[in-house]
Amino acid sequence: MSAYVTKSPWVVHYDGSSCNGCDIEVLACLTPMYDVERFGIINCGNPKHADVFLVTGSVNEQNKGIVKQIYEQMPEPKVVVAVGICACSGGIFKDCYNVLGGVDQVIPVDAYVPGCAARPEAIIDAVVKGLGVLQAKRDAMLEQKPAEEAPAEEAVEETAEAVEEVKEEGGEE
């Protein structure tokens, strides 16, 4: 049975040391143009209510504690999506003296969205992919064992199809 968490993923968004480009794109997903609420996605701004953690920008010495704390405050099942090339690897800021690199330097990341800035379609795609991971984690929670690395194939396929449909709809306009 598919878990309800895949039907109502609430998002908390944290801006690491991003240039703000990716943040604007994350917010663009909420606008009438992309309207992620039709998938039940809400930007709830509270880690304790959130299922999906969107991080934009790289982690540095100052914010690594914050990123960790937000992650720890989220109740299981949860997924982390790194948005933009900065969040994936450090990107253009990689060589700065205070930058540690991508978000995966401090917390486990489930989906990476490349791009500078990441496109809203790609962000939605990543969140929907993350739903497969959420489903797998939920199943693992039910069986009382640690989550497997690979997300449930079926769920990913299903959600990927949904995204394709949306993209087609968008293309027609």
Partner: peptide, 11 residues
């Protein structure tokens, strides 16, 4: 869906 989801979450 939201409420069912909330019941699925960790305590």
């Amino acid at each position: 869906y939201d409420v069912f989801k909330l019941f699925e979450k960790e305590k």
